[in-house]
Amino acid sequence: MISREDVEHIAWLARLELTEEEIEKFTKQLGQILEHAGKIKEVDTRNIKPTSHPWPLKNVFREDVPRESIPLEKALKNAPQKESGAFMVPKIT
């Protein structure tokens, strides 16, 4: 079963600041969902290979043809904050 500490740890890993109320609610709800999902543990899968994708695709190449790139101004269009042609972020500590 998932504990309150687990929820706080996952929230930190996922970079989500949760309120006290959310921590409580998620502890309960994630517990219920994981209990239901945990049903899969009863299946014997010893000789079964995992599937990560519908088709066994790998190394899809295309011709390396130069194309026009996105202009700087356009690339920065949706930036919350920008300066001197760059994305601006708060201090990195």
């Binding site: 970079r15 930036a79 919350p80 904050q81 994305f87 972020v89 708060p90 201090k91 990195i92």
Partner: peptide, 19 residues
């Protein structure tokens, strides 16, 4: 909150800004 979309502008450093 870096390249597009909503950003919290109150945060004092980048870690707090992400969260």
């Amino acid at each position: 909150g870096v390249r597009y979309g909503y950003r919290d502008f109150e945060a004092k450093d980048i870690w707090e800004m992400y969260a």
